[in-house]
């Protein structure tokens, strides 16, 4: 609708008697943005693709080696182990984020008193950097001085090596990722839940529906599109998780919390094997692209749905 008004040449005395001039003006205003992004992101990304076919390392001239890096990566057990750990990490963190985020969104939508301050408290973890999150949980879960181990000892479970045991480390960092990521889900879901009209629920109640039935028959179906978007978005973001896990465990103990991103970082910046790292990077990019295309498809369908 605005497009029609905007494209009316008389709207601006300067710009647009000649369409070419308007096109030039428009493109010259957006051009810096595209040039900038191309220089800093697109060209390096493509250069990484080239590097992935070479044996490049810092200070060496890249030699073309064909698909050797991809073959080496895909036949390395470490890669598949890292991929499997990433899958578990993402599954645990994102399903908790979505379940608790949805629950809290429903609770908050029915709450009237103190809603602003409660939301502010719940989303506070968003402001924490990976370094602060790692400091916080590194201390809370510390084997010797951590308050959480004090509690578990008082309750009779003894002190647990949350971050330094092979069985617990991945679960623990997945929980920390949930802690840091849940507020993002809440921000996406709460406005959607709050926008559902109370009349539907009142009508359902008059018809004798229980709270549980209202949730499964009304809330969930109506929120499904938003839930899907939030879920795919969080999967994409969580797949690239790096900072907090790297600071807390460096992928250890014994690679038990080595995610794909950490495997990539080690290959590139600990072993200086840039060709191989670039191959892993592009494999990660392809996995992300697969997940993103679901996201884009969903957005595209929504957009098509609202315009028709």
């Amino acid at each position: 609708m605005t497009d029609v008004a905007l494209s009316r040449p008389a709207a601006s005395p300067h710009a647009s008697r000649v369409p070419i001039r308007e096109a030039l003006q428009g493109w010259s205003l957006v051009a810096p943005l595209y040039l900038f992004v191309t220089a800093i992101i697109v060209i390096p990304e493509i250069w990484a693709l080239y590097l992935s076919f070479t044996d490049y390392s810092v200070g060496r001239t890249p030699q073309f080696v064909g698909l050797a890096n991809y073959r080496a990566t895909l036949s390395a057990a470490e890669f598949w182990m890292a991929a499997w750990r990433t899958l578990q990490f993402v599954a645990i963190a994102v399903s908790l984020e979505i379940a608790i985020g949805l629950w809290l969104a429903c609770i908050l939508a029915r709450l009237r008193a103190f809603r602003g301050i409660i939301i502010a408290c719940l989303i506070a973890p968003i402001a924490m950097s990976h370094a602060v999150t790692a400091t916080m949980w590194g201390y809370l879960l510390d084997l010797n001085v951590g308050p959480i181990n004090f509690l578990t000892e008082v309750m009779g479970f003894g002190r647990l090596p949350w971050l330094s045991s092979e069985t617990l480390a991945l679960l623990t960092v997945a929980f920390i990722e949930f802690w840091a990521g849940m507020p993002h889900v809440l921000i996406m879901l709460f406005p959607v839940r709050a926008a559902l009209s109370p009349e539907i629920y009142e009508a359902a109640e008059l018809d004798g529906a229980t709270a549980r039935q209202s949730f499964w028959r009304i809330t969930l179906p109506l929120m499904m599109p938003a839930l899907l978007i939030a879920m795919i978005f969080r999967i994409i973001i969580t797949m690239r998780a790096f900072g907090t896990v790297w600071i807390l465990t460096k992928g250890g103990p014994l690679e038990s919390s080595e995610l794909l991103s950490i495997y990539l970082y080690k290959t590139g910046f600990s072993y200086w094997n840039f060709g191989q790292a670039a191959a892993i990077a592009w494999l990660m990019l392809l996995i992300t692209a697969a997940a993103s295309s679901l996201y884009m498809l969903r957005l595209y369908r929504d957009a098509a749905g609202t315009t028709t």
Partner: peptide, 26 residues
């Protein structure tokens, strides 16, 4: 000034958001 393809060009930016930052560091 969304005519002449300017308005449509922005959809390419969504793809940027999807690229994992670690990939660019290599």
């Amino acid at each position: 000034l969304p005519r002449h393809g300017v308005g449509r060009s922005s959809s390419a930016l969504l793809i940027i958001k999807m690229l994992p930052p670690l990939v660019v560091t290599v």
